[in-house]
């Protein structure tokens, strides 16, 4: 595929288990590609190694076997072409919101004038005007999350990796954030890989949904979602095609959920 930005190529990952000689296999032969300017959601049951895939794409973890390729180049060492939005907002607590958002620009040697301008614009884009001088512990959970996203968008990374970023938010905040993320990523044409365990969230946000199985994870399905955009994050069920998409994803996913319910 020519427009592929990120390619996971037959990824396998084993983790050592304390007190046992055999390693635990977490990922087993995962291959998929992330298309440029598209939103790819990775869903799977908890503990299936979804987040591990993101760490590999960021170059923070080398796979046991297989490779991640970013624009054809094998990822080895920290990949500075990506942006990472972690599960918790993880703003640096000793920096104000504006300083947090400025940090990646500062680290990359962007000139002061341009930094100021881009930080102001990023703060505006996530509707946090007037909070630039607040420290993270003076901001609510949702505001911190917005800050975290702004901190990533501000340096326009080639790919944005998001690790269940809305998992810890309450339902209303989550819907607002999903809607905002759709708008923001569409505005800049961002390529996003989004890990979640929420099927609805995956379908609403993604152009492609990758479904993983339980540990050791294999890829169960790679499903394109061709619902028109912008999508309604608040009342998704009003769109009859949402049901069809949900059914397709659920068909691939249900066996895993049933498996989890089986008595051990």
């Amino acid at each position: 595929m020519r427009d592929s930005v990120l390619a996971f190529d037959d990824i396998r990952q084993d983790f050592p288990v304390p007190g046992r000689s055999t390693a635990m296999r977490v990922l087993d032969g995962i291959s998929f590609e992330v298309r440029a300017g598209k939103f790819t959601a990775v869903i799977g049951p908890s503990g299936c190694g979804k987040s591990t895939l993101l760490q590999m794409a960021a170059g923070l973890l080398a796979p046991t076997a297989g490779a991640v390729r970013h624009r054809g180049r094998k990822v080895e060492g920290v990949n500075r072409e990506v942006g990472f939005v972690p599960q918790q907002a993880q703003l640096f607590p000793w920096k104000t919101l504006a300083e947090n958002i400025e940090l990646p620009l500062l680290l990359r040697g962007v000139a002061a004038d341009e930094r100021r301008e881009r930080v102001a614009q990023a703060i505006r884009s996530v509707a946090l005007d007037g909070f630039g001088n607040h420290y993270p512990n003076q901001l609510s959970g949702g505001m911190q999350k917005r800050g975290s996203i702004a901190r990533t968008l501000v340096y326009r990374p080639d790919v944005i990796l998001m690790d269940e970023p809305f998992g810890a938010l309450d339902a209303q905040t989550r819907m607002v954030m999903q809607s905002d993320l759709q708008t923001l990523s569409a505005e800049v044409g961002a390529t996003v890989v989004f890990v979640t365990h929420d099927i609805t969230e995956a379908i609403l946000l993604a152009d492609d949904v990758v479904v993983l199985s339980q540990r050791p994870s294999r890829m169960l399905a790679h499903i394109p979602i061709d619902l028109p955009r912008p999508r309604d994050m608040f009342e998704p069920f009003r769109n009859p095609r949402f049901d069809a998409a949900y059914e397709t994803v659920w068909a691939a996913f249900s066996a895993q959920v049933a498996g989890a319910r089986r008595p051990h």
Binding site: R80, G83, F84, P104, L107
Partner: peptide, 23 residues
Amino acid sequence: ELVNLAKVMGANERQLTTHVYLP
């Protein structure tokens, strides 16, 4: 995780010291 985030954002060792470890 904060250290890893700073690395992905582009921090070198010296910048990690001043922006993450020391504070």
